[in-house]
Design a protein around this nucleic acid. Sequence first.
DNA 1: TTGTAGGCGTTATCAT
DNA 2: ATGATAACGCCTACAA
Lengths: 332, 332
Amino acid sequence: MPVKVTIYDIARYANVSPSTVSRVVNNQPNVSKATRARITKLLKEYNYIPNETARSLVTQSSRMVGVLISDIRTTHHTDGIFYLQRELSRHGYSCLIYNTGTGDEEQLRSIQVLQQRKVDAAVLMGSIYQTEGMKRALKKHLSSIPVFICNGYLDLPNVYGIIADERGGVSDCVKLLAGKGRTDLAFIVNQYTPSNLLKREGFEEGMTRYCPGKTPVVVESGTSLPGVYQATQDLLRQHPAIRGIIFSEDLLAVIGIRALTEMGLKIPEDVAVIGINNSSYAEICTPTLTSLDNMLYDLSLTMAKDLYSVLQGEHINRKVMIYSEIVERQST
Amino acid sequence: MPVKVTIYDIARYANVSPSTVSRVVNNQPNVSKATRARITKLLKEYNYIPNETARSLVTQSSRMVGVLISDIRTTHHTDGIFYLQRELSRHGYSCLIYNTGTGDEEQLRSIQVLQQRKVDAAVLMGSIYQTEGMKRALKKHLSSIPVFICNGYLDLPNVYGIIADERGGVSDCVKLLAGKGRTDLAFIVNQYTPSNLLKREGFEEGMTRYCPGKTPVVVESGTSLPGVYQATQDLLRQHPAIRGIIFSEDLLAVIGIRALTEMGLKIPEDVAVIGINNSSYAEICTPTLTSLDNMLYDLSLTMAKDLYSVLQGEHINRKVMIYSEIVERQST
DNA sequence: TTGTAGGCGTTATCAT
DNA sequence: ATGATAACGCCTACAA
């Protein structure tokens, strides 16, 4: 048995033409019961597997979806990739993954690679791709395939956005705290991605609505964990009246809780804490963390299904919003 | 400007043959300075990007590496993928990623897809692929390309294994605890992967060497977090003499610490705790967690570089071991 | 230095 | 129902 078995080999063994074999391989009609059986048998016997590359070339479809992510190590995005890949592979699609970092030039290169690889669709994980530079790149390199942005949106005819309502969600967090009589609140954010900007807006909006007369305190902590620790303690030294803090991510909140505890403050008695993402961090920290669930599961699943629909030629809404929900635990 | 620009179009515009354009595109010699310049200009002007599919078909190389992972949401494996992808993309390679789950049939299907996609190499993330079933599948479907197993090994001519010395590492953990006068020790494992079996062996080996006369206590907790919590508390109720616990993963250790604390035990005074992986969990929990660093960073990087070497036709060791190191923190 | 022609493995369009 | 033939876009001897 040859190392590589082609459709030609099978044709020879079966005394038919390659076309007939192709028909059998692709379950097409117009093949007699008998020959179909004979060929099917040979296919198994010789362990024939079609060459997807050749197939892609002629069908003009690679059955691959390119996935861009700034850093695959960030957990809430891998969740998305997981569902996406699972859903797509059920339909014979594969996922090509690139870590793009956060720099423009590297992101652009990734887009070019996707074009070169002739992916059938692209998925951009995260709001950080919601930029003008990316818009230009998509226009230039990927204008002919559907592009999905997970938690972001760009106004281009082939771009679809599935967006979490983090603005409304954070506003609801303020409402929750205000309902517990806490109106001196702060928001700690590591860095301003488009998503985090929305959270900040939600915070300020919530403050004006639910804590009238109080000044919203916003702190940008940077991404390093010691930096977050420091920023949290500094915040309470400068604003001792603070009774509640919302962090832009669970991980930050976990660090923050630690910083507060080691200052001698009790959670939630002295200061209530809320995180965002409802990740596993929220469950394992002490006290367990109240967190805004931005429904990344729903979001990913919606995206995966919508993506497949579009690939099938269906028409769907280009912009979808998924509502967030607060999961309350011990920290509030 | 046409939507898709081929090497033929450029040839026409430049009044040369397609082969000449191909030479320019691939930086080959034997093109006059003048025509090269002319063609280069047109290439830019028309935004020509070679069709990788066609290229793959003729060169018999897809420049893709298939990556298999049981679940991309497990953090320590995504670290590996990160480094791998970064290293490979520097050389024009792309990563095709599949979540295989833990079932045999799904894993087999993934292998078939890799064969069908004609990947140039495969990477299996995690010791769970070190099975007889996988060996058969590799023999049947991927015998002609290099296959790397991250933290595992199979004795096949085309299979390379990069393995963390977790056995020795866990033994060292026992030594560390014994050195602090703690000889009543336990090992809590969620489930028995090949990697975790080695850890267990290391534990038992360390016990006989460093804690002679003491019985090694081993508990299998299952993977659910409440299960781990319960198992930890049960352990101490049944064996109140236990003075130190090694958990098969940091995450388990974090849960364990919590379980112990809520029983009224002090860490590390009453019970010392060690985790494995030296992940971010170790840094954020309270108290911070002493952890066995199995050098996944080195391991991934080594693998990425070795993989590229093999792709270049170089000859390397089929089995490499990376030594582990203990990072001591507050929990011991 | 440049061009011609064949082939990579498959599908698709015609005939037969 | 089956087969011949021409793509798909590119690379690569070989010829000129």
